[in-house]
């Protein structure tokens, strides 16, 4: 299983390397969100600083939704879906590989997005330890759900609109915990941030468990 995970992880990263979809399309998209949000809130710096943690994670969710759609459609084109079924790749391994590749792409997006928010909104970066743990675990949770729902809508007419409808409500707990923990890390939240980080870890484990458990059913659907 881990061997197949590694194989699929390398394939997804290679696809990104060859097409640079995340770097060329998703990253500019989240930068546009950062700017538009400043317009929407009238560049009021106090409000922007207060909203920054939540905004960051909302932008990450949108970015994840875009990347998931792209990866899922690549796996359906030109008979690749059949070829994958014929290959004997373990679906659970493929799921883990896709999740890790998606996480890696999200981490890159988050790094650029984070820098942009710090620079444009004038944020003092604090609590880096908590921020890093929160970022890692939340990213894993988001990617774990994305890798379940991407293949679910692949090949369906109207998937562009259905995916966010399925994907975003399920991400609510991750968004909630990630935004609270980030706020605490940046010195504005209530209470301690570590319990929220722990919850993110638990959510990631639950989502990964569901993904591994459903992978082979989804691979064999006809």
């Amino acid at each position: 299983m881990l061997r197949d995970a590694w194989l699929v992880l390398r394939r997804d990263l290679r696809l990104e390397w060859r097409t640079r979809t995340t770097v060329n399309q998703v990253v500019p998209f989240v930068l546009a969100i950062v700017l538009l949000f400043a317009f929407a809130l009238d560049a009021d710096s106090a409000t922007l600083v207060r909203a920054s943690a939540g905004l960051f994670w909302i932008a990450v969710l949108f970015a994840a939704s875009m990347i998931v759609q792209r990866v899922a459609s690549v796996d359906q084109r030109d008979g690749v879906g059949d070829a994958l079924r014929m290959s004997g790749i373990d679906p659970a391994g493929a799921y883990i590989g896709r999740t890790l590749a998606l996480s890696a792409q999200l981490v890159v997006t988050e790094a650029v997005l984070g820098l942009a928010i710090v620079a444009f909104y004038g944020i003092d970066l604090r609590g880096l330890g908590l921020l890093a743990v929160t970022g890692g675990l939340a990213t894993l949770g988001i990617a774990a759900v994305g890798s379940i729902y991407g293949p679910l809508v692949a090949g369906i007419e109207g998937r562009e609109t259905v995916l966010p409808l399925l994907f975003l409500p399920v991400q609510a707990p991750v968004l909630l915990a990630a935004a609270r923990a980030s706020e605490v890390a940046l010195g504005r939240g209530v209470g301690s941030g570590w319990p929220w980080a722990a919850m993110l870890g638990m959510l990631a484990v639950i989502y990964l468990g569901i993904g591994v458990a459903t992978a082979s059913t989804l691979a064999e659907e006809t």
Binding site: V170, P173, I210
Partner: peptide, 13 residues
């Protein structure tokens, strides 16, 4: 998946 997520959603909220 939705049913499995009822509890995590409830817990976090």
């Amino acid at each position: 998946v939705s049913a499995a997520l009822i509890y995590p959603v409830h817990m976090s909220v």
